[in-house]
Design a binder for these strands. Sequence first.
DNA 1: TTTTGAGTTGTTCGA
DNA 2: GTCGAACAACTCAAA
Length: 486
Amino acid sequence: MSQRPVICWFRRDLRLQDNPALRAAVDTGLPVIPVYILDEESEGVRADGAAKKWWLDKSLKSLSSNIERLGGRLVLRKGAARPVIEALMEKTGAGAVFWNRQYEKPLIDRDTAIKDRLKESGVEAHSFNGSLLNEPWTIETGSGGHYKVFTPYWKAVRANYSAPDPIVAPDTLAGSDVTSDALADWGLHPTRPDWSKGFAPFWRPGEEGALDRLDHWLKNGLGAYDERRNRPDIENSTSGLSPHLAMGEISPQTIWRAVRQAMQDGRRNIPEDQAWTFLSELVWREFSYVLLYHNPELHTDNYNRDFNHMPWRCSENDLKAWEMGCTGYPMVDAGMRQLWLTGWMHNRVRMIVASFLTKHLLMHWHHGEEWFWDCLVDSDPASNAASWQWTAGSGADAAPYFRVFNPITQGAKFDETGDYVRRFVPELAKLPDKYLHAPWEAPDHVLKKAGVKLGENYPHPIVAHKQGRQRALDAYDKLKEKRDAA
DNA sequence: TTTTGAGTTGTTCGA
DNA sequence: GTCGAACAACTCAAA
């Protein structure tokens, strides 16, 4: 039995480069069986949203063909991971399983149970860090706890972190003849209707797409990141790496190394502060994982329990208008439509639409969290939950309650050219800049000339800014009263 | 143990 | 038009 094969279990790490679990599996010198399990059945597991499944479909195709190029074959299986793994062990006689860790509580529990079961039956199980620069339990404050404020966390990372050497991809993955599900049978790509048609022009899922995107970013965006990052109307104002990172098609170490090298390469002419700001965004992702790891219910429960008393509104109509990009606020609507059309939204606009939902409409952040989870190709269990709570004010180190984004001035400031609104809300394209972010203020003859009929081809605002803002501030006052009374 | 300074991303108002 | 202050109070992290 000296040639018992080993299993490399791919999860949120769909890449061959810089993949510690894969490397360790290959380094055994034994035949490696690469496996991906679509697990929506294990207890407490949250299924991916529809947009993420679209991406997963393409990413698995890419990984699969890369493995075939190395003489192997990716084995696809569907079902609760534990029985699937057990069945595979029996079928293949594998002597070890390798994987990279994930950090959601239900997955940790599932994986721990699998590890125990494997060990009982004499099979080795090895897990690795394949998704984070620093795993959530590794960075502690001076007094031994985990950080709850970003800035000191960032300072600690920046002062101490240096990326390890890259891990090379295997040059062969000797064939296995284990049968695989057909990817097409999983129905990850939407049909009837295929709402994903708008996605394809924007994305190239898979490891090559990720590495190309990084390269493009280093050449075209990184050097001006700090000054452009809030401008959704400017191309390359952000990296666009988030969906690749969310699927593990590229490791954060690869990004960190490439950016640090670019900073030190004089020919690239990358100002240090611009690049450090970009790296800090990578560390925001890590900070979100710290919060998620220590607060497993982050996507459902208020981090700050005071918010359990928040007098949220319930309005199906308002929620629908927000989701569909029909709020009457051009900047909000542009963002929501960009999300629907492309599976992604610029970060500045995410804050604007999130503030609008939780403050102007006074709707619970979980509605937004769920919509984003379903619509974003980059949806991430930690970032999505932590960011929604941050905006709502219930999160760790959250925005102060009185910070209510004004969708009109935010639009004028960050969509200065108006290109963003004109692109995603074409019915307003002919409005002059002066009224683009507040069409209800335009005189009749201006609206007429631009072909805009408020209430007909573009909605009136569903809530007046001033009233919406005041209603939110009043709600926070009530919240405070409840807390003081308690 | 106590103290101190600080905390991603904003808005409004009045001088 | 520009600018600074007020908008709260609290918790965190480190000295």
